[in-house]
Design a protein around this nucleic acid. Structure first.
Length: 206
DNA sequence: TGTGTGATAGTCT
DNA sequence: GACTATCACACAT
């Protein structure tokens, strides 16, 4: 079956990513993450992200300068940063900024739209809310691993586009980031207020 | 229904 | 050699 989907793979321009991580995080809410596997798309709508800065952000991998692992964060915006954590999980970030400023946006959760059966298979779970409700889950469902580290997000196998049909801009809430110890004073986590596909267990206090 | 704890391996000092 | 992050499961209420 080679039926063409309605999703047009119009990548976001590079200038979209050449902003600060905080600005990019807000813009990414509601965009579509598309992963092409065997010519079949997995599509999800991004509903939860976190911004990470550079040397000025103690929660960021780039806080202590460039290392072998985080050097992708120092690229200009529009490419991926995939890192391995907990000895068993991957996390997917979108690199922000231009020139040498380090920064990235961690994709924490998304809403499954297309290829749901494939995602269930990859995750070995049936419930929709268990598929993409966490950074490591999202990578497992989308088959994102280190081989995708550093690639640009403007073409297959991994890209980000705008949602074609949108009634109105999503209401966006900001909260402190999750799973870190430093930098808790910054409210750099951005979520779609209407979404039920978030990674946080409790509804956030505003 | 909600909370607590154990498991894991790559990266940096 | 120490640290780091998340998921999944078990348990108690």
């Amino acid at each position: 079956m080679s039926k063409t989907r309605d999703y047009k793979y119009v990548p976001l321009p590079k200038s979209f990513y050449e902003v600060t991580p905080v600005q990019l995080a807000r813009k990414l809410i509601g965009t579509l993450l598309i992963r092409i596997i065997d010519n079949k798309p997995l599509v999800a709508r991004i509903v939860e992200v976190e911004a990470y800065g550079g040397r000025d952000d103690p929660a960021s991998h780039a806080y202590r300068g460039m290392t072998g692992r985080n050097k992708v964060m120092f690229n200009s915006g529009g490419c991926s940063y995939v890192y391995f954590t907990y000895g068993m999980h991957y996390c997917f970030n979108v690199v922000a900024g231009k020139g040498k400023q380090a920064g990235a946006v961690l994709i924490r959760a998304a809403e499954p739209l297309e290829g749901i059966d494939q995602m269930k298979k990859h995750r070995n779970k049936e419930k929709l809310h268990d598929l993409l409700s966490g950074p490591a889950k999202l990578c497992q469902a989308f088959l994102i691993d280190k081989s995708l580290n550093g690639i640009t997000l403007d073409k297959p196998p991994l890209l980000i586009t705008k949602e074609s049909i949108r009634k109105s801009a999503p209401e966006i809430i900001t909260t402190p980031r999750i799973g870190i110890k430093a930098g808790l004073n910054k409210k750099w986590r951005f979520i779609d207020a209407e979404s039920t596909f978030l990674s946080a267990r409790r509804s956030p206090d505003i």
